[in-house]
Computed example of a mutant assay.
Amino acid sequence: FRARLQDRTGNIGDWTGWIKGQSNANADDYLESIGDGFLTDKDGDRLTGDIDTNIEAIIQNALANNATVEHQWAQYGTVRADILIVKTTIAEVDRGLAELRTQVQVQIDDVTAVLEDKLTATIDADGATAIHTLKAGIRINDVFYNAGMSIAVLAETGKPVITRIGFNANQFVLMSGSGDKQYSPFAVINGQVFISDAFIQDASITSAKIANASIGTAKLSDRLSSDNYSPGMQGLSINFRTGEFELNGNSPGQGRRVMTNIRDDYYNGSNQLVLRIGKLR
């Protein structure tokens, strides 16, 4: 692109030189931004945070907020089991809160297994939020291992409304089928995605391995091109419908090559045909 300035009296300046640019095709940059945005919002912070396993402190805090507490527990030596239900409702001049929390927990010495189901609806000066988190965790030697999911709608003041479902786990596995014929068509294991079969209308791929473990069978119905492709100018393009292969330099003016099933053409930096191999016309 290039630009020039025009002042309020109508005087127009000269054009600037051409400036080359392209949209960001690095998926990691987008994923980092999406992840950071999620983690800094209320639903992401709650999903990834540890579950409070201090039952007594939870009860005391609930009673201080005039909450209703249902607590069933049993203990034998260092073994303790708890089921806790806390219902909190707050209605004031400028804010309201309704929250239901269920916690199931068992502890032996320094090992704790816990599940938490928490539903929270709020409206205040900062906006309105509705967040539901379901979490499971195990604490071993003060190290907490956490998995869970969240469903949330955030309508915070001055921000776009966000509707979001989030998952937090080392392994995310989708199962299909029934009986003894169940299988997983989709899974995410330690950050790597595995897909059995996919139909994709449009895809941007930074790096791909075809027929080499990453993609066993690839059906490409139209075109494969580099992210900087511009017809006759730069980048690479393979048109699967016409059988045409076009190879350009990484910037305009470096020459190019166009190959079809009947000939191979070479162009210089001035876009002049300098060599043709195969059928002349």
Rank of each mutant, 00 (worst) to 15 (best):
A3I: 07
L5G: 11
L5Y: 14
Q6E: 15
G10Y: 03
G10T: 06
I19Q: 14
Q22N: 15
S23H: 06
N24E: 04
N26E: 15
L31I: 13
E32L: 14
E32W: 12
E32T: 11
S33Y: 02
S33V: 06
S33I: 09
D36G: 06
D36S: 10
D41Q: 12
D41N: 14
R46C: 05
I51F: 10
I55V: 14
E56G: 04
E56T: 15
A57C: 00
A57Q: 06
I59T: 03
Q60E: 08
A67Q: 05
A67M: 02
V69Y: 01
E70R: 09
H71A: 10
W73G: 03
A74R: 13
Q75P: 05
T78D: 15
I83V: 07
L84H: 05
I90M: 04
I90R: 09
A91E: 13
A98Q: 11
A98S: 13
E99H: 11
T102V: 13
V104Q: 11
I108L: 13
V111W: 08
V114I: 11
L115W: 08
L115P: 01
E116K: 13
K118T: 07
T122L: 10
D124Y: 07
D124M: 05
A125H: 05
T129R: 12
T133A: 06
N141L: 10
N141C: 04
N141Y: 09
D142Y: 06
F144V: 08
F144N: 13
G148V: 08
M149V: 14
V153K: 15
A155K: 07
G158Y: 01
K159Q: 11
I162T: 10
F167I: 02
N168I: 00
A169M: 06
Y183T: 13
P185G: 04
F186M: 15
I189W: 04
Q192C: 12
V193P: 02
V193D: 02
D197Y: 08
A198S: 09
F199K: 14
F199A: 14
Q201M: 12
Q201R: 15
I205V: 15
S207L: 02
A208G: 13
A211C: 05
N212K: 09
A213G: 01
I215C: 06
L224C: 03
N228S: 03
S230G: 12
S230H: 09
G232F: 03
G235N: 01
N239G: 01
R241S: 05
E244P: 01
E246W: 00
L247K: 00
N250W: 13
P252K: 06
R257A: 01
R257P: 00
M259Q: 04
T260H: 00
T260I: 00
I262V: 04
D264M: 09
D265Q: 07
L273I: 03
R276N: 10
G278F: 08
